[in-house]
Design a protein around this nucleic acid. Sequence first.
DNA 1: CCCCAGTCCTGCGGGC
DNA 2: TGCCCGCAGGACTGGG
Length: 284
Amino acid sequence: MPELPEVETMRRGIADVVGGTIVETRFPVISCKPIAVSPARPTLARQLRGATIERLDRIGKRLVIRLCHARALVIEPRMTGLLLLANPPDEGHLRVGWRLEGVPVDWLWFWDRRGLGTLQLLSDKQLVARYGPGKVGPDALAVTVDILRAQLAASRREIKVALLDQRAIAGIGNLYASEILHVAKVSPFTPCHQITIPQWRRIADATRSVLEEAVKYEGSTLSDGTYRNALNQNGGYQNHHRVYDRAGQDCPRGCRSQVQRGVQAQRSTFWCPRCQVLRKTNRA
DNA sequence: CCCCAGTCCTGCGGGC
DNA sequence: TGCCCGCAGGACTGGG
């Protein structure tokens, strides 16, 4: 599932499209339900024709293709979306293709097995209104203890649930939230308002180190094989997961306890009950 | 505002 | 063996 490291890997992987001009937008005929695009397909194709790609940005888990004339194509891969330069896993789930001129890359593709991904063509003004500061939180790769506390310390939510809130911090999803809290040695069930400053510091440090490491290994390809880089190759970080999808296995910290699985906000949480103890605190 | 549950979507694996 | 159900979790929405 593309989270920050996977989207960042996509961004780097398609860097060759920068400077290219979109000469055609193609929607391959597919048997499954089409993905949501805005504006509607014919308009989108017409408005993209002749557009030059100026830069690639990332806002949390969204990829932003900056275009000439102060426009931006916002791509949300959500669960199974991929940006590819070649070798789609199958032809049946290719959703959109862009033919480019002026760069070594002929085609950029959006492939999405489940089809939950979305595309939006926005003006720069609309982009800021929808995804600017205030709408989407600070990027998780640049998080500090002060940012974390400012965004989350007053909340009564459990920290694992709060870390998934993109308005608070942008880029963390279900997989990396569990990984971060294991490295930080903080129980995922700790209410935010009970977290101590040393714990916030460890969460901030772990957020950056886990995500940086995951970017270095080009993201996580899970057993369902969904996430791939721009050339349809596996990421490598799944071999470095500490707790995610490792229920029953020994804690990698060597504490001789086993990784547990639980559910928070209808999503799986993995943690070590010995390294991530929920401490009872006395409330005033 | 805060928080939860439901919704979208497809493929896969467990259970019968 | 085949079928069906539930799960996977991105973002969003409606309701309490």
